[in-house]
Amino acid sequence: MPYQSALGLALPLAIGLAALGSGIGLGLIGRAVMDAIGRQPEAAGKLFVPMILGFAFCEALTIYAFITMFMLSGRIQ
């Protein structure tokens, strides 16, 4: 298999896998925060910043995969 085909197959797959992991992580964070707010609604303000930060760290992983894809997708030609 020429490496172009390998890249063409692997890059979308890599993005998808990274997004899968990020999605699970985001879902866990979101669920935990929702639970916490449901249990203690007055804590919503305090939970906001950690939630956003957790989202950011979680989602950064997909972004890394995304950037990697763009760095490598030029080779498919």
């Binding site: 989602e59 950064a60 763009f70």
Partner: peptide, 8 residues
């Protein structure tokens, strides 16, 4: 990388 990747 985070900011760039998201906005891009």
């Amino acid at each position: 990388a985070r900011l760039f990747g998201n906005i891009f």
